[in-house]
């Protein structure tokens, strides 16, 4: 088989895979939206990480400030 035909075949396979993925993401996206509309759930409360308690007060104030 000439190289040109092999190249065209590979290109066709790449296009098929790309279109397939595009189709998959379109369908999945639509399904997610429909599910979201039909099964509306109240947003779950979210708790951010609390501030860490301040480290023990440094007794040596001159530490690291020598210059």
């Amino acid at each position: 088989m000439p190289l040109k035909e092999i190249g065209l075949m590979l290109l066709a396979l790449v296009v098929i895979a790309a279109v397939g993925h595009l189709w998959f993401h379109t369908v999945e996206g639509l399904l997610e939206k429909i599910k979201g509309l039909l099964l509306r759930r109240p947003p779950q409360p979210w708790h951010p990480l609390p501030e860490e308690p301040e480290e023990e007060e440094k007794t040596d104030r001159g530490e690291g400030g020598g210059d």
């Binding site: 397939g20 993925h21 998959f24 999945e28």
Partner: peptide
């Protein structure tokens, strides 16, 4: 799992 003709796999 999904199967859309030529494209199939899992998420």
């Amino acid at each position: 799992r999904f199967n859309y003709g030529f494209v199939h796999g899992s998420k």
